[in-house]
């Protein structure tokens, strides 16, 4: 029994989520192969070979995989994945886009967002915005799974010494073409990997007002997140949304500012170790999950907090 893990990367470096997925693979048990499909991605393959627990790196370096379009990568994995018992990828937007397509090509189910491994075919995963935890058994010969990073502590990025095997590209699907992208530029830590996250909601009132959160975040070395309402109102871009249908975070410290605490938001942050809520409405549901709640106007409290740290 061998497990194929699909690496998350941008052709220049391996993304941290891959290390959490490798940890889940180690819990399932068996030989672990890591697939790096990209273009000009040799550095990623070298990095992947050092990750703890990786037995072999499969590297497919071809122009058609430059943007890892699901139509093309799925054809590749449906071909080279047939001999594995499990195919795993991080539950990132990439993984979520790709894995169901692979599963359907293999005529097997896909299990989304696992947070725990019970045994080699049984997993736990949150459903209903995390208001219930399902234990699900896979019955298919190949199990195609996406892994929620917050459920598994990452394996070490170093210490491994796997062989890198080059594979040739599969045929091109010829269905989709990359047109362009607008990627957020930030010097702050990545939201899903940050030790501290400061998030703002509708209470911030405007995009400009997010500056007071950014100041606080800079002081704490934190990432900045947001509620759906803050994104929908155009205060901040979509990649900052935390929640059931956004990013899932579980930092050491989560500070929710001007966020009411709707179940969809809680779904994305309630596994944080320590939660602080700052809200002027003492009845706000966010206080039900907060370890420390401060009933105050955020425009007074946040600058004061930043000063006093």
């Amino acid at each position: 029994m061998a497990i194929l893990v699909i690496a998350e990367h941008d052709n220049s470096s391996l993304k941290g989520a891959t290390l959490n997925t490798l940890a889940s693979a180690a819990q399932i048990g068996g030989d672990i192969h890591l697939l790096v499909a990209g273009s000009g991605c040799e550095a990623v393959a070298q990095e992947a070979a050092k990750a703890e627990g990786v037995g072999r790196v499969l590297c497919v370096d071809a122009p058609i995989y430059e943007h890892q379009l699901a139509e093309d990568v799925a054809l590749l994995v449906a071909e080279c994945g047939r001999d594995y018992s499990h195919i795993l990828a991080p539950a990132t937007t990439n993984g979520k886009n790709l894995m169901p397509r692979i599963a359907a090509l293999l005529d097997v189910a896909q299990i989304s967002d696992i947070t725990a491994v019970e045994n080699e075919n049984t997993y736990r995963r949150p459903i209903y915005a995390g208001n219930a935890i399902a234990t699900v058994q896979a019955l298919d010969p190949i199990q195609v799974i996406t892994v929620r990073g917050t459920g598994f502590d990452p394996v070490s990025a170093s210490g491994g010494n796997a062989e890198v095997q080059m594979l040739s590209a599969a045929s091109a699907a010829g269905l989709s073409r990359f047109v362009g992208e607008e990627l957020a530029q930030s010097d702050r830590p990545e939201l899903t990997a940050a030790r501290v996250v400061v998030s703002g909601g509708r209470g911030l009132g405007s995009g400009e007002n997010f500056a007071i959160l950014e100041k606080l975040a800079d002081k704490l070395g934190a990432a900045v997140g947001a509620s759906r309402a803050a994104v929908d109102s155009g205060f901040v871009p979509n990649d900052m949304q935390v929640g059931q249908t956004g990013k899932i975070v579980a930092p050491e410290l989560y500070i929710a500012v001007g966020i009411s605490g709707a179940i969809q938001h809680l779904a994305g942050m309630k596994d944080s170790k320590v939660i602080v809520a700052i809200n002027k409405d003492e009845e706000a549901p966010i206080f039900q999950v907060a370890d420390y709640g401060l009933v105050a106007d955020l425009f007074d409290a946040v600058p004061e907090l930043e000063q006093k740290l």
């Binding site: 937007t93 607008e182 979509n238």
Partner: peptide, 9 residues
Amino acid sequence: EVDGGLQTL
């Protein structure tokens, strides 16, 4: 809407 921002295909 992707993790890093926006992508157009």
